[in-house]
């Protein structure tokens, strides 16, 4: 379960570039629920995920993951509760390490790391099996450096990495945005499979209205650091991509009007 309460995030406070990225966001996501997040550029989507992951510590408000209050915990301290896949395939894995070393690193997420060999025969076999499930042929390249893989392959491995250690939540920030359409679909199907098999509480940011409605149980729209739409259940089923786009237009139009007022 995720529960955030009245979150305030202000970047560059007290400087001319001060930016309120999140303004009083409150949200509760039940255990095992899959929420998609949409919103225009700069709406605060990544910031919200950052607040959950610990990259961004809010100036006000409370963040609960499961039963743990993580409001003041940094990224590393709460990593045991949070699995993530980033938008940039280069961010989520370590190019200088081999595929299996990346997996070994992820398998210990949130645990103490000792002096035992990271790649014993048992672990190697386990990693191999998990990678073989991808059907990308990567199981024969376990010793290859990660930076030899394509972006899509890296994202697929990142998804496997996200599930090696147990976690409360899975955070996906436009994790298919850098991929070609075919690979994007592959990664989305894989995401769907992993999320439903492992019943992960998931939050996925996307710019694709199609994805936002096709996947998950609930969709929220952010704008100007606030939640402006929150639909689930039947009302969500009835929602069409066109409706969302219209809503987008309307909200953007509103801000234009506001600006016009300010200038006028």
């Amino acid at each position: 379960m995720i529960s955030v309460n009245n979150i305030q995030v202000i970047f560059g406070k007290g400087t001319p570039l001060q930016k309120q990225a999140l303004n009083g966001v409150s949200l509760t996501i039940e255990q095992g629920s899959f929420v998609t997040v949409i919103g225009s550029n700069g709406a605060g989507k990544s910031t919200l995920l950052g607040v959950l992951a610990g990259d961004v510590l809010p100036s006000e408000g409370q963040v609960m993951i499961g039963k743990t209050d993580v409001s003041r915990k940094g990224t590393a301290a709460r990593a045991g509760l949070v699995a993530r896949v980033f938008q940039d395939p280069l961010t989520g894995s370590c190019g200088a390490l081999s595929i299996e070393e990346n997996l070994a690193l992820a398998a210990k997420r949130g645990e103490a790391r000792g002096l035992a060999a990271a790649l014993g025969p048992k672990r190697r076999e386990h990693f191999r099996e998990r990678i073989a499930e991808l059907n990308l042929g990567l199981e024969n390249r376990m010793g290859d450096r990660m930076d030899l893989l394509s972006g899509g392959q890296r994202q697929a491995v990142s998804l496997v990495m996200a599930t090696l250690a147990g976690s409360e939540v899975l955070l996906l920030d436009e994790h298919t945005a850098a991929l070609d359409p075919g690979m994007a679909e592959f990664v989305m199907n894989l995401t769907q499979k992993i999320v439903s098999e492992r019943k992960l509480t998931t939050m996925m940011v996307t710019h694709s209205m199609r994805q936002a409605l096709d996947y998950g149980h609930r969709t929220i729209m952010l704008h100007g650091g606030e939640i402006v739409l929150d639909v689930a259940g039947d009302s969500r089923k009835e929602l069409q991509v066109e409706d969302l786009i219209a809503m987008f237009r309307r909200i953007r139009g509103q801000t234009l009007d506001d600006d016009a007022l300010l200038i006028g």
Partner: peptide, 24 residues
């Protein structure tokens, strides 16, 4: 080549990823 050493190598190679994996 141990778990602890892997954490150190990840820190140098990709600190953001290392933190996301719980490495201080």
């Amino acid at each position: 080549e141990s778990d602890a050493g892997l954490a150190m190598r990840a820190t140098g190679a990709n600190a953001r990823m290392a933190r996301a994996q719980g490495v201080d």
